[in-house]
Simulated assay, not measured.
Amino acid sequence: MKYDWTDAYCLAKAGAEKDFKLEWNATRYSIRGKMFAMQGGDKEGKAILTIKLEPSFGAFLRSQYKDIVPGYYMNKEHWNSLYLDGDVPDEVVREMLDQAHRLVLESLSKKVQKEICS
């Protein structure tokens, strides 16, 4: 599988936690229970990584790469799914994951952000 580095990359982020949701057959990456990425499959079982992004950035990426689509089974405005057998450059995927982590971290209280980042 391409992008096999994403698990370690997500877990290296400040405050990142990983769990597996059996009902969804998906691995979730979150900060204090707020998800920023999820790895699972689409209805055909194709491996996808679904990532939270700023709506305008997500729309831009979908216009540039055929392997990035609106978030599978998620809010299509804020979530985008990346097919893990696709051809999106690693640096773009890293940028997506960085933004997702930042968005969730910044949504937490200043006190919690300070706890996580210190």
Rank of each mutant, 00 (worst) to 15 (best):
N25H: 15
D19S: 15
Y72L: 00
Y73Q: 12
K46Q: 13
K52M: 09
V104D: 00
Y73N: 10
E77T: 15
L49A: 06
K13W: 05
E115K: 13
Y9K: 08
K111F: 02
S63T: 09
I116G: 01
E95H: 10
A37Q: 08
G45N: 08
S56H: 08
N75F: 11
L53G: 06
E54S: 14
P55K: 13
V104F: 03
G41M: 10
L103V: 09
I68L: 05
T50D: 11
E17C: 11
M38C: 13
M35P: 00
Y9F: 15
L82S: 01
D85S: 14
I68C: 04
F20N: 14
Y83S: 04
M96Y: 07
L97S: 02
I116A: 03
D4H: 14
V112Y: 00
C10L: 12
L61V: 05
M35R: 06
Y29V: 06
A47T: 13
P89Q: 03
D67I: 00
I31Q: 02
H101T: 09
M35G: 02
L11I: 13
K13L: 10
W24V: 07
S109P: 01
Y29G: 06
F60Q: 13
D4N: 13
Y65R: 03
P89T: 01
G71W: 06
K21V: 15
G15S: 09
D19P: 03
E23G: 09
T50H: 04
G15P: 02
I48G: 01
A12T: 09
S81K: 04
T6H: 12
N80A: 09
E23N: 15
D7N: 14
E95C: 02
K34P: 03
V69T: 14
M74S: 05
V93N: 01
S63P: 00
E23Y: 10
L105V: 07
L108A: 00
G45V: 10
D90H: 10
K18V: 13
S81Q: 04
L53D: 05
S30H: 14
K43P: 02
Y65Q: 05
T50E: 01
K43C: 06
K52E: 03
Y83C: 00
K18W: 07
Q64F: 00
D98R: 07
E54V: 08
D42L: 08
A14L: 08
H101A: 05
G71I: 08
N75H: 09
P70T: 10
D85H: 15
L53M: 14
Y65F: 15
A16K: 12
Y3W: 11
I51K: 02
S81R: 02
